[in-house]
Design a protein around this nucleic acid. Structure first.
Length: 262
DNA sequence: ATGGCATCTAACAGATGA
């Protein structure tokens, strides 16, 4: 079974890329972020025609997440509050969390806040959001030991995940507090960054800035991830980054990351 | 280098992204 994650930076703008990629890579599940489309305008037919069931949570202009699955998902859950309760303030207003189950496997699709600049209000929001993510994932782990958490994390976990780590301690997506939050909310409760189980090398990225010809110079960041719960790691066969769509015309700035499970 | 580029909007400039 193959599961992919891809921040498409507007699903409607990238619809041809998504359908082309799915035609060439007929994964079982595709988790999308930054769909930027309200639910009533979600482009259903082109994706259903490829054989996918669609699950989505969108809003106008920003954010938005979706799961495309060849088999129907069970126990669909949108946002943090169905899992952690209503005491999370404004953290479900932005549509960043969707989850569903395939048998005993729970799949969680996340679009972690960007954070803008270190120390900004959006940065504090990102850290608050990650704090609630810990409660959310811990609760899910009590329900099933087989949890896959994927998405755009907007955090490069280590310096080898950045083309040039100089100044990263105060850089958004690599600051000390962000990495500590990722450690506390995901890694410390047993999740494994499965890409690094197969690929230890530097220079492997999932996002390249649109500016300064970053892609052709491979000046990227690895910020899109698949985390597997400890009980799922032994089922992992491969995890790969597909850079191909970044070279297509008018691409997303992110590319798909695919994990294969037995 | 507060640029460089892309996407969105009760748009045509400003917010957001990373």
């Amino acid at each position: 079974m193959k599961i992919a994650t891809w921040n498409v930076n507007s699903l409607r703008t990238r619809l041809d890329h998504v359908t082309q990629w799915l035609t060439e890579n007929p994964v079982d599940v595709l988790c999308l972020q930054e769909t930027k489309v309200v639910d009533k305008d979600f482009p259903r037919s082109p994706l259903e025609d490829l054989g996918y069931h669609l699950y989505f949570s969108g809003q106008k202009s920003y954010n938005g997440v979706a799961i495309l699955s060849r088999s129907p998902l069970e126990s669909l859950s949108i946002g943090f509050s169905p899992v952690v309760g209503e005491s999370i303030g404004d953290l479900d207003e932005q549509k960043r969390v969707i989850s569903g189950a395939l048998g005993d496997l729970r799949i969680v699709n996340l679009y972690v806040p960007n954070g803008s600049e270190v120390g900004s209000d959006k940065y504090q929001y990102k850290l608050r959001w990650l704090s609630v993510l810990r409660d959310y994932l811990q609760e899910l782990l009590t329900e099933t030991p087989h949890v896959l958490v994927c998405g755009d994390f907007n955090i490069a976990p280590e310096d080898r995940d950045i083309h040039n780590p100089v100044g990263r301690a105060n850089h958004i997506m690599a600051s000390i507090a962000e990495r500590e939050a990722l450690e506390k909310s995901v890694l410390s409760i047993g999740f494994i960054d499965i890409f690094r189980q197969f690929n230890p090398d530097p220079g492997q990225f999932s996002w390249w800035d649109y500016r300064a010809a970053a892609f052709v110079k491979n000046m990227g960041w690895r910020i899109d991830h698949h985390y597997l719960s400890a009980n799922l790691v032994e089922k992992a066969i491969a995890c790969t980054i597909d850079k191909t769509p970044r070279s297509w015309e008018k691409p997303s700035d992110h590319v798909p990351v695919v994990v294969e499970l037995s």
